[in-house]
């Protein structure tokens, strides 16, 4: 029997745009019924262009937004997503890392407090204990105990993203939702953060939902891939299935649009250019 960490059944989210004087009420179907299952310790990548509903899906998985329809099972339990019905235990299982590490850290809060805050809200740990846990986590994400008393502006983008990951891991979640975690980072830093995520997944047995628009990153990190387009999952399968044999028209367009950085394609492009110049 497979060990399912996350199951989503026909989940939906509609947003209502308020009616104006001459404008009737309008409903936007941001996510139009998406279903998937994810095994423990695996990574599901969700790909799609801006406005396709991938971040809305992430917000529903982390209980930031309430789904307007469908069911959500985490670790075998059905989640009651109505406001007021979520227990702290449910929330502890899922954490999120946002895209922009500059916007997601409070500039007035020291890093030690950033990491200690989830513990002080959700547990009865003493301050000394919280400090110890936060320092341990800093070391785990590749920073040092000396960073405990610093402010976010003293860190580079890659370091901030490490802090955001550390904060998400403070409550020992089982499922981590990563909303474009590396798209604001430089290539060399991106590689370091991706390596860190792989290390942490091995160490803690984490399950990742990895949202990205970068297909080369997805191909590297994902076990399963879902392609979203206008609120619908148009393609869903294992990484090899999706990349070797894309079924949907949009997936093919997406693959064709991704720049290729291998020597053969450069050679082909130069040959095309020469031919065009000669003609």
């Amino acid at each position: 029997m497979t060990d399912t960490m996350l199951e989503v059944r026909n989940i939906k989210r509609d947003y209502e745009l308020a009616a104006g004087l001459f404008k009737p009420k309008k409903i936007i179907h941001a996510v139009k019924g998406v279903s998937f299952k994810l095994e423990r310790g695996k990574t599901l990548a969700i790909v799609g262009e801006s406005g396709c509903g991938k971040s809305t899906l992430a917000r529903m998985l982390t209980f930031i937004d309430e789904p307007t329809g469908g069911e959500l099972y985490i670790d075998g339990d059905k989640m009651d997503t109505r406001p007021g019905h979520l227990t702290p235990e449910m929330r502890q299982k899922v954490q999120i890392v946002f895209q922009n590490p500059y916007g997601s850290l409070n500039p007035r809060q020291k890093i030690g407090d950033v990491l200690g805050e989830p513990l002080s809200i959700n547990t009865n740990m003493s301050a000394a204990e919280r400090r110890e846990r936060a320092t341990e986590m800093l070391v785990k994400v590749g920073l040092g105990p000396e960073h405990y008393n610093r402010y976010p502006h003293m860190f580079s983008g890659g370091q901030r993203q490490r802090i955001a990951i550390a904060r998400a891991l403070m409550m020992n979640p089982k499922l981590l939702v990563l909303d474009e975690p590396v798209s604001a980072l430089d290539l060399s830093v991106q590689a370091q953060v991706l390596n860190l995520l792989a290390d942490l997944q091995d160490e803690f047995g984490l399950t990742y939902v990895f949202i990205s628009h970068d297909l080369s990153v997805v191909r590297y990190i994902a076990d399963e891939v879902m392609v979203m387009y206008f609120g619908e999952a148009v393609e869903y399968g294992t990484r090899d299935e999706v990349f070797s044999d894309p079924k949907h028209e949009y997936t093919r367009t997406l693959f064709a649009a991704t720049p290729r950085a291998d020597v053969e394609s450069i050679r082909a492009r130069i040959a095309r250019k020469k031919a065009a110049a000669a003609a």
Binding site: A191, V217, Y220, I221, A261, I266
Partner: peptide
């Protein structure tokens, strides 16, 4: 073509190796 096929400087080599599509094994070169 030369840059991608036969990069001279260490930094360019590192940049190309950090591309996820050039990953060998289960960790990226940084």
């Amino acid at each position: 073509l030369t840059l991608f096929e036969n990069p001279k400087s260490n930094y360019t080599k590192a940049l190309l190796a950090a591309l996820p599509e050039n990953a060998t094994g289960d960790r990226l070169t940084t």
